[in-house]
């Protein structure tokens, strides 16, 4: 069994970093969350030195909810005459992990987890198990969610679900020499009566 290390963590990218990592022509076609998610992923990959990971995974509670809301608004005002193909394309939850793959030309394993508060840990578990078993040697694992004005106004609009305004990306590797920060020993995810909990068991190097 291989060991699993984390070799880079990127989060809180600045507007300036986004501008330097994504060309204006490309950025214009992307929503806010997509831009931030892509820039965060690119930054983590650059820091780790692993340009082409074997896996790209994303964990998201609500997906690109801002685009979904635009369609819902359209349907609320214009009924079913509404036609918003670009928004629809960007409204599926897997759009972020796909965008990263398209941008970097990565044909590896690609998946998106959307399981409430433990979405990121589920994505992490997929990468962890794959690297540990030797099926993969590296993985980019992201977490991405956005808070829109509607949800700032009414956090319970979509029911009792917890999420925050966040873009974060981890690079996992089987190779300690890839600038390992710490080791992941296990990911433990538990469900009980409709509620999940997760623990990332880490060890210092």
């Amino acid at each position: 069994m291989n060991k699993v290390y984390v070799s880079a963590i990127a989060n809180k990218v600045s507007e300036e970093e986004i501008r330097s990592l994504i060309s204006p022509a490309k950025a214009r076609r992307l929503g806010m969350l997509q831009k931030r998610a892509l820039a965060t992923a690119l930054k983590a990959l650059a820091v780790s030195g692993i340009e082409m990971p074997d896996m790209i995974l994303n964990g998201t509670v609500m997906g690109c909810i801002e685009t979904s809301l635009r369609i819902l608004d359209g349907m609320a005002s214009d009924g079913e005459k509404v036609a918003m193909p670009t928004a629809f394309m960007q409204s599926t939850h897997n759009t972020v992990a796909s965008l990263i793959a398209i941008h970097t030309g990565n044909h590896g394993y690609n998946a998106t987890y959307s399981h409430g508060a433990v979405s990121f840990e589920c994505a992490l578990q997929d990468a962890f198990l794959s690297i540990r078993s030797g099926q993969a040697s590296s993985a980019l694992v992201c977490r991405n969610d956005e808070i829109t004005p509607l949800m700032r106004q009414n956090p319970k609009f979509f029911g009792n679900v917890q999420f925050s305004d966040v873009s974060e990306a981890w690079v996992l590797t089987a190779n300690r020499d890839d600038g390992a920060l710490f080791e992941i020993e296990d990911i433990v995810i538990t469900h009980r009566n409709g509620t999940d909990s997760a623990e990332i068991v880490k060890s210092e190097l």
Partner: peptide, 23 residues
């Protein structure tokens, strides 16, 4: 949200101590 749908299924049956959702 997606996860909530899965968790409601898990809760309805009461025999699951692990749940996740792929989208």
């Amino acid at each position: 949200d997606c996860g909530s749908n899965t968790n409601s299924i898990a809760k309805y049956f009461g025999c699951f101590d692990y749940a996740t959702t792929i989208s």
